[in-house]
């Protein structure tokens, strides 16, 4: 179940990495702190899950080995989270779509047959409720703010929507986990996610884009060009100084 833990953990890790790029550059100091807060929560989730995955290995690796020494095609994060930050609107839309998904996922994951995952989900769901409150609040403010803000977030929504498809399609790792009662079937998260998202988009006066059957799934290791560049940066110190302790 290492791969399943990585599927969830890598998503949190890569999203935390993206949010880390914002710190010191946000539209207001308060938002620097807010984004850092979310990044820290996500990084905490990632560390827990990667540590768990490492312990399931026979070779005694660590969370850092998994984070810093794996190649891009071995990462199992959602493609959505490796997309560039873009402007604040695009970052908020990305966050909102992921938060709505994590709410459904962690809610169900609390019933996992794997106690470590159930434990993680119980903690993470509280964090995610706060993240969702933050991101959905901003989707509404920007969607129903000025003409410019509306245009920007609608554009972002249109651009990112195709990456939501894979949230509800089980990868091979997920299929295995479902069979063992470790993970919920992603397809079962769709209805809840959809209605939650629709409610916010309506209040935000945003148009829900048409669904697209987009099949390049990060969960299967099929990544965009963005991931290798992101990892080149993230992994640089460990790659430059192999074997060193930090």
């Amino acid at each position: 179940m290492r791969s399943y833990a990585l599927t969830v953990g890598d998503t949190s890790l890569i999203l935390a990495q993206r949010l880390g790029e914002w710190i010191g550059h946000a539209p207001a100091l308060e938002e620097d702190l807010a984004l850092a807060n979310i990044a820290l929560d996500l990084l905490g989730q990632a560390r827990y899950l990667l540590t768990h995955a490492a312990q399931l290995q026979s070779d005694g690796g660590s969370e850092d080995d998994l984070a810093f020494l794996r190649d891009p095609q071995d990462f199992l994060n959602l493609s959505l989270v490796e997309q560039p930050n873009g402007d604040f609107g695009q970052t908020i839309v990305r966050q909102f779509l992921v938060d709505a998904w994590q709410l459904e996922l962690f809610e169900r994951l609390q019933q996992s047959s794997e106690p470590r995952l159930a434990e993680l989900a119980a903690k993470a769901i509280k964090e995610t409720r706060y993240h969702f409150r933050f991101s959905s609040g901003w989707v509404v403010r920007l969607g129903d703010g000025t003409e410019e803000s509306h245009r920007r977030v609608q554009t972002a929504l249109d651009a990112l929507w195709r990456f939501t498809h894979e949230m509800f399609v089980a990868s091979p790792a997920e299929q295995e986990a479902i069979a063992l009662g470790v993970a919920p079937d992603p397809a079962s998260l769709a209805a809840g996610w959809s209605s939650r998202v629709d409610e916010v988009l309506k209040e935000a006066t945003l148009q829900r884009p048409a669904d697209v059957a987009y099949s390049w799934h990060g969960k299967r290791g099929q990544h965009s060009e963005h991931l290798s560049r992101l990892l080149a940066e993230m992994q640089s110190m460990q790659r430059m100084y192999p074997g060193a302790q930090w």
Binding site: P27, A28, R141, G145, E148
Partner: peptide
């Protein structure tokens, strides 16, 4: 860049 780049965000929040 952060301050000017984020002006549209702050304005949108006030407008909303």
């Amino acid at each position: 860049r952060a301050h000017e780049g984020g002006a549209w965000v702050r304005e949108a929040a006030l407008a909303h």
